[in-house]
C-alpha cells in the first residue's frame, strides 16, 4: 500500500520538534488507517481506528462473532486466532497491526454440517459446555497439532493452559485433543 502523507496531526504531538529531524523521513502517523488482510481466505479492505483491537475488528467490523472476548488482557484465550498460522491473542493486537496478514478464525474451520476433525473430536468428548471459550481452544489446539502431531498428555495440558475454561474441568478437552491428533494423523476427514 502506498504511503500517504501524515494524517490527523494529534493535538498532543509537538509538531515543531519533529521538523528538526534529520535525513530519515518519518513514517506517517495515523489515527485511522486503511488495512487489507485475508480472513479465512477472504480478502478484506477496511479503514479502522488505530486503537481498535483486532478482536473488535473481526467481530464488529467483519461480523465474525465466533471469536470471543473474555478478558481483554490476554489471559483467558477466548479470542485466540491464527495470525499467519500462529495462535495469538487477538485482544492484544490492534487491527492495524494485521495489515497484510493472513488470519484464520473458528469460522474458517468446519461447518455445522461438516465439522473439522478437531471440532468433531471436541463434540465426541464433550469438550465444551457453554461454548464461549471453545473457539479459542480450537484455534490454540489447531496450531499446536500442526507443530506437534504426536503430543504427550503433558504437552497437551501445557498448551491448553493458555486458555481458560470455566465449565468443563478440561478433561474432555484433553481427551478431544489427544483423539484429534490421532484423527489428523490418520488423515481422517482431511
Amino acid at each position: 500500500m502506498k504511503r500517504r502523507a501524515q494524517t490527523n496531526a494529534s493535538r498532543r504531538t509537538p509538531q515543531a520538534r519533529r521538523s528538526k529531524q534529520a535525513k530519515v523521513s518519518l513514517p506517517p502517523l495515523w489515527t485511522r488507517k486503511e488495512i487489507r488482510l485475508r480472513v479465512n481466505g477472504v480478502e478484506y479492505t477496511s479503514t479502522v481506528d488505530v486503537r481498535m483491537t483486532l478482536v473488535d475488528f473481526l467481530r464488529h467490523e467483519l461480523g465474525l462473532t465466533g471469536t470471543h472476548v473474555g478478558c481483554e488482557h490476554g489471559v483467558c484465550g477466548a479470542c485466540t486466532i491464527l495470525l499467519d498460522g500462529q495462535a495469538v491473542r487477538s485482544c492484544l493486537l490492534f487491527a492495524v497491526q494485521a495489515d497484510g496478514a493472513e488470519i484464520t478464525t473458528v469460522e474458517g474451520l468446519g461447518t455445522p454440517e461438516r465439522l473439522h476433525p478437531l471440532q468433531e473430536a471436541f463434540r465426541d468428548h464433550h469438550a465444551l459446555q457453554c461454548g464461549f471459550c471453545t473457539p479459542g481452544f480450537l484455534m490454540s489446539t489447531l496450531a499446536f497439532l500442526r507443530e506437534n502431531p504426536e503430543p504427550s498428555d503433558e504437552q497437551i495440558r501445557e498448551v491448553l493452559a493458555g486458555n481458560l475454561c470455566r465449565c468443563t474441568g478440561y478433561q474432555g478437552i484433553i481427551d478431544a485433543v489427544r483423539d484429534a491428533a490421532q484423527r489428523l494423523r490418520s488423515g481422517y476427514g482431511a
Binding site: 520538534r17 530519515v24 486503537r51
Partner: peptide, 24 residues
C-alpha cells in the same frame, strides 16, 4: 476496557524507529 486514543506509526527500519523515538 478500550484503550484511550493514540496515534500509530509503524517504522520498518531501526533508523526510522530511532527518529520516531527521538521525536516523541
Amino acid at each position: 476496557m478500550k484503550p484511550a486514543p493514540f496515534q500509530y506509526t509503524a517504522p520498518e527500519t531501526v533508523e526510522e524507529s530511532l527518529v520516531l523515538l527521538h521525536t516523541f
